[in-house]
Each structure stands twice: as C-alpha cells, then as structure tokens.
C-alpha cells in the first residue's frame, strides 16, 4: 500500500506543480498593477498549461501552445501595451459596488462549477491519453486529413474572413477634405 501511494504521488506531483504555477500566475495576471507584469504572468500561465498538455500526452498541442500563444500573441500584447503607454491616470476607475458584485457573481460561478465537477466521472474515451502515441504529429495529421478534413477546410473560411477583417480595420480611410489625422 505504501508503494502504491507513493507512485500515485509521484505521478501527480508534476500535475500539482503545474497547476499551482498556473493558478498563481493567473491570479498574478489579474492582480498585477503594471500591465507588463500582467502579460508576463500570462505567459507563465501558458507555460504551465503546456506542461499539462505534455502530461496528457498531447505534445504537439503543447508545442503549438507555446509557439502561438506564449510566443507570437503575447509578444504582440507586449508591443501593444508599450505603444499604448498605459498609466494610472488613464486607468478606468470602477466603483467598489461593481467590484464587490463582480466578485460575488464570479464566486458563485466558481462554487457552482466546483460543486458540479466534484466527484464527476468523465466518460472514458477509447484511445484516451494513455494510448500509444496519441498526441504525436503523425497521428494528428492522419486524423486531420481523413475524419476531420471538412472542419479543417472550413476553418480556411474563418481565417480568410479574419484576415479580410483585419485588413479592413487597418486600412486607411479615404480622406475627404479637412478631416483630422
């Protein structure tokens, strides 16, 4: 019994560490006064989540998560924050009533979620995280281009639409006489 207990502990130890980091850093993200610290905390949260993905045998998603979110998007965030030049004066002030009611509402959601998920048993999927090589790029590619080829292709509409939208927003307006900037 002693041995079994320690193996469970050993397997759960990385999970606990990653979760601890993720929660701590997520709290840091929302409590940090300086937005740059906020973004840095968010990056560390993403790192911890990537750790979770690795534990779930989803190496590809872990790497993509790091590259896309922690890499590209967060660098973009940092640049925007530095360019925006946020400081205390421009920070919107919310009254205490709003803060308290927000905290109560979010707390209730948390209690509900925790209550619902306590002791919940997930449906066991065939070929779950324990299966051999489940999260490798090879298997992912195979399934992406066979079973899921339609969603894969249709997501191209999504990206095209997002791209057109981004260009549309960024496009300079035609100036018509005397308008400022």
């Amino acid at each position: 019994m002693e041995d079994a207990g320690t193996t469970v502990m050993m397997n759960q130890l990385p999970f606990i560490i990653f979760s601890f980091i993720a929660i701590l850093m997520a709290l840091g993200t929302i409590t940090a006064r300086n937005p740059v610290y906020s973004v840095l905390c968010l990056i560390l949260t993403f790192f911890a989540l990537s750790g979770h993905y690795v534990l779930l045998n989803a190496q590809f998603i872990a790497v993509v998560n790091l590259i896309v979110y922690a890499g590209a998007i967060m660098v973009l965030f940092l640049f925007v924050l530095m360019l925006l030049n946020l400081n205390k004066e421009t920070e919107p002030v919310k009254s205490y009533l709003w803060q308290i009611s927000g905290a109560i509402a979010a707390g209730l959601v948390l209690v509900t979620l925790a209550g619902a998920l306590k002791g919940a048993s997930a449906y066991m999927v065939k070929g779950g995280p324990e299966a051999e090589g489940i999260g490798l790029v090879k298997n992912l590619g195979k399934i992406l281009f066979s079973d899921f080829v339609l969603p894969f292709e249709i997501s191209s509409i999504l990206f095209l639409a997002a791209m057109v939208g981004a260009v549309f927003i960024g496009k300079r307006e035609k100036q018509e006489g005397g308008a400022n900037s």
Binding site: I154, L158, A161, A162, V164, G165, F168, I169
Partner: peptide, 8 residues
C-alpha cells in the same frame, strides 16, 4: 465564422 466578420 458568423461572428468575426460581424465584429468588424
């Protein structure tokens, strides 16, 4: 796909 163009 429906929402993102609409935001713009």
């Amino acid at each position: 796909i429906m929402s993102i163009p609409l935001y713009v």
